[in-house]
Design a protein around this nucleic acid. Structure first.
Lengths: 119, 119
DNA sequence: GAAACATATTAGTGCTCACTTGTATAAGCT
DNA sequence: AGCTTATACAAGTGAGCACTAATATGTTTC
């Protein structure tokens, strides 16, 4: 069922209003959606911003106080960000430090540019 | 292009495990979240991709068949994308043509680059 | 080993959201 | 005028999600 639009496109006489669009790469879609849905949430977005603003990696204990949800919620949010490839985490003693990945940096920068330079 | 980087009002004598992060610009956060949540959905993402792939603007009638949800759902999705500033729409006769905005183009391009860049 | 701290995991729950169905508006066609 | 097509809007509903609370795991210090 890869090829479509063969059935009645030419002979049926049904005039289409515009060019039918091509398919979407489903692998890319899955990857992008994981990133977008991970970022597209108040708590996780703010965590990402705070992690990105700090130069040296942020631990959960600080983030917890900042975003106003429970420790458990912060942990879950960070876990999700990690799974989506938006943060790295390193363990140091009993603390865990989170740092932004290139994906996070690039997307936040793009968003910043778009906000700053609207036409 | 230095960021605002509001200094937090932490009155600290307490020892923390790392540097406390600064605050997040809530205006920027609201704007970015509207964009991210609008893109972060299967149907809307695919609509955006299809709209972006077409050179000349796409009308709802074609999109409807492509994404596999009802006409009403497509209309609602496009409305949301429009509200979020991700597409423009122009009316031509009884059809409506949607085209990507700069925001959409920039974000999809960033996502493409990120996917292609790492191993 | 026990207690205190730091983070993760599990279970349960209210709320949001994306969909479907039905209806409304508006433009072409006969 | 009616009929058909193209899109939008409104109401209702099921599923997923983000939270809290409780518990578990791991680390440091006594």
């Amino acid at each position: 069922m890869a090829e479509d639009a063969i059935t009645d496109g030419t002979t049926g006489g049904a005039e289409t209003c515009c060019t039918p669009p091509g398919d979407v790469d489903s692998d890319a879609m899955a990857t992008d959606l994981q990133v977008l849905t991970a970022m597209g949430n108040d708590t996780r977005y703010e965590l990402l911003r705070r992690i990105s603003n700090a130069d040296d990696g942020v631990c959960v204990c600080d983030l917890e106080a900042a975003v106003g949800v429970s420790q458990s919620a912060v942990s879950q949010a960070l876990s999700r960000l990690y799974t989506a490839g938006l943060v790295t985490r390193r363990k140091e003693g009993s603390w865990r430090y989170y740092e932004p990945t290139e994906t996070t940096a690039a997307l936040l920068e793009t968003l910043d540019e778009l906000r700053g330079a609207h036409e």
